[in-house]
Each structure stands twice: as C-alpha cells, then as structure tokens.
C-alpha cells in the first residue's frame, strides 16, 4: 500500500495537523512502509470472527444523576491560554 502525497495531505487535514514539507515526504514513505507491514493481517480469514473493541464484560455502566462537587470556574479556566471572563477565548468560527 503506497500512500500518495495527496492522501497524506488529506489525512493531515482530517487530523487538523499542519505538516512541514520534510514531514510530508517522510510520512509518505514511513506510513507506506508501516501499512505494507499491516497487510500481513490479510492472511487471516476473519469473515466469521466478531470484533473486540474492549476486553471487559461491561455494558452501559450507569449511576444516579446527582449533583456532586466539581471544579470551580477559576480552577477550570486556570490553564486557559486565553480567557475572557468565565469563558475560553477562541478565534471567531463564523465571520
């Protein structure tokens, strides 16, 4: 499986990751090599095998919907790169 430059750029955009020119070249080559290694899996017929997403036998763990102590706004915002009042400040999403 050889990735094209366009595919690498498409994946990077899906992941919202800017890449340098060197990284684009490097990842095109390295990811292709890793994906080629993954083809080993195609030797196995898994048509009748169910997938495993997690290994514990638990489903839909619920708890009563009760108010409990949580972080204060000051604590929650303490690490914010930019804040305005009690909000995280971000660049405009809509012009």
């Amino acid at each position: 499986m050889k990735l094209s430059r366009d595919q690498v750029l498409h994946i990077a955009e899906l992941a919202k990751l800017a890449l340098s020119e060197e990284e684009i070249e490097l990842f095109t080559e390295q990811l292709s090599e890793i994906l080629a290694y993954f083809e080993k899996l195609n030797r196995l017929d898994t048509s009748a095998i169910p997938p495993t997403a997690q290994v514990i036998d638990m489903r839909n763990v619920t708890r009563p919907d009760e108010v409990r102590p949580s972080l204060s706004p000051e604590e929650a915002l303490a690490n914010a790169p930019q804040r305005k009042g009690n909000f995280f400040k971000v660049k405009p999403i809509l012009e």
Partner: peptide, 26 residues
C-alpha cells in the same frame, strides 16, 4: 480557528505522536 488548530498541533506535537495520529486517522 482552523489555522490555530493546525499550527498549535504542528508545533506542539513531536514526530512520533504525529506519525501515530496520521496512522490512526487513516
């Protein structure tokens, strides 16, 4: 905001983390 996401992640993450994000996203 899109530029902020892309550049923050480009500068903040190292090569192996980027490689795995790319691999996983793919």
């Amino acid at each position: 905001i899109w530029d902020a996401y892309r550049k923050t992640r480009e500068i903040g993450f190292g090569a192996e983390v980027k490689r795995r994000i790319m691999l996983g996203t793919y």
